[in-house]
Design a protein around this nucleic acid. Structure first.
Length: 229
DNA sequence: GCCAACGTTGGC
DNA sequence: GCCAACGTTGGC
């Protein structure tokens, strides 16, 4: 039985050390398979080291207008040194990682599919906070068991972990939600965005991504790639 | 843009 | 090896 994971990426471009950096589900789909470089957090790195070939991954959009699960992926190469840490020109350069003694590791991940229905993080929060006997409208397939699975996700109470383990039960729930959808912007609640339609990335419209431009150069422990310059 | 939560750093 | 100061994450 394969393990399950969640990995965060930022769909909006940002400037890191003078280079534009972003990685959306569209980028992921276009590129197919990618090294998950740029993770600079020890716990996230250790989690990547326990990933095995064929493990399943939830692809998460973070730091955007509506964060959430945008797609599905699979591990195609187990942990190996993150060589971007050795390149002084690279945005994720880390002088403390030596080639003879690498500090940072990455895995290769293959795009599998987009979520037919983008699963918004605010909705997951709402489900986690619900009393299980009254699922949000349109989500009658979410019962007590499903609520507990969501409630226990690292995603819900470990906001800063960019690579995390996902229990099989939680995976099942998310997969079902991505497949079935059923919620509307109102049931989702939480956000300030006034968008009546369901957030789906299946169609032409892509309203789950914010357009925030953030030009600081903070290093984050999260992957962003597709550098344009 | 704000800021809470939490991770990292460094002086002692 | 404590812990205050500082820095980063990331939702809102």
């Amino acid at each position: 039985m394969n393990q399950h994971w969640l990995m965060k990426a930022e769909p909006n471009s940002r400037i890191v050390k003078g280079k534009e950096v972003k990685f959306s589900v569209e980028d992921f789909e276009a590129v197919g398979t990618t090294p998950w470089e740029g993770v600079r957090n020890p716990e996230a790195r250790n989690i990547m080291k326990s990933m095995r070939l064929g493990d399943k991954v939830l692809f998460y959009h973070s730091s955007c207008k509506t964060p959430g699960i945008a797609g599905f992926a699979e591990v195609t190469r187990e942990a190996y040194p993150d060589y971007t840490a050795w390149d002084p020109e690279h945005p994720y350069y880390d002088p403390k990682s030596e080639e003879r003694n690498p500090k940072w590791f990455m895995v290769d991940v293959k795009f599998v599919s987009r979520a037919a229905h983008f699963v918004p993080y605010p909705l997951l929060r709402k489900i986690a906070a619900s009393d299980a006997t009254t699922p949000p409208a349109g989500l009658e397939y979410i019962g007590e068991k499903e609520v507990s699975a969501i409630r226990e996700m690292d995603l819900v109470h470990r906001g800063r972990l960019s690579v995390q383990r996902v229990q099989p039960e939680a995976w099942e729930v998310i997969e079902g939600m991505a497949e079935k959808g059923g919620w509307t912007e109102e049931t989702k609640g939480g956000g300030r965005a006034k968008n009546k339609e369901e957030t789906s990335i299946n169609g032409k419209r892509k309203n789950e991504e914010g357009t925030g431009t953030d030009t600081d150069t903070r290093r984050r422990s999260k992957r962003r790639t597709c550098m344009k310059s």
